[in-house]
């Protein structure tokens, strides 16, 4: 299983989940989602194929899970309904389901918050120059 084949092919099923985890991603097209999932797949490439398959299965389960209570798939739920389903799962009594959600959530956070452009928007701008670079940047701000 190559590193392009874990979550990449499941972009359509992941999109509503990602948008629930990180609402700012709701506006992303599938093409814009690709680099986020590529970062995740790069990390997953180091994992055993069995774990990769389990994750794919979990994404598919998430897609169909709301069918039992709402007769709708995850993709056709409104954002607040998706949040309700995923919140229930996060605190559900079955540890394996909680862990599955935690794992997927963590990987999608890696794909999004691991992006240096997103980090910069949060205000995270580390510099190997440390305090000197920081002070220079502050002085420049004050001068503007």
């Amino acid at each position: 299983m190559s590193n392009q084949e874990v979550l990449g092919p499941l972009a359509r099923q992941i999109q509503p989940v990602l948008a629930t985890f990180i609402p700012a991603t709701a506006r992303l097209t599938l093409a814009e989602l690709a680099p986020v999932l590529a970062r995740v797949d790069e990390r997953l490439a180091q994992e055993p194929p069995e774990l990769q398959r389990q994750l794919q299965l979990f994404v598919r389960i998430l897609w169909w899970l709301p069918l039992f209570t709402t007769l709708r798939t995850m993709g056709s739920l409104r954002p607040e309904q998706r949040l309700k389903v995923l919140n229930w799962l996060q605190d559900c009594p079955v540890t394996k389901l909680r862990l599955g959600l935690w794992g997927l959530r963590t990987l999608l956070f890696l794909g999004w918050y691991g992006d240096p452009a997103v980090q910069e928007k949060l205000g995270y701008r580390p510099n190997v120059g440390g305090w000197d670079a920081w002070n220079a940047a502050q002085a420049q701000k004050r001068g503007q």
């Binding site: 629930t20 985890f21 609402p23 919140n87 996060q90 963590t106 956070f109 918050y113 997103v118 995270y124």
Partner: peptide, 13 residues
């Protein structure tokens, strides 16, 4: 860093 922070904050949304 941001990813580790996001991972460690419980929850989502």
């Amino acid at each position: 860093m941001p990813f580790i922070t996001a991972k460690n904050l419980t929850g989502f949304g």
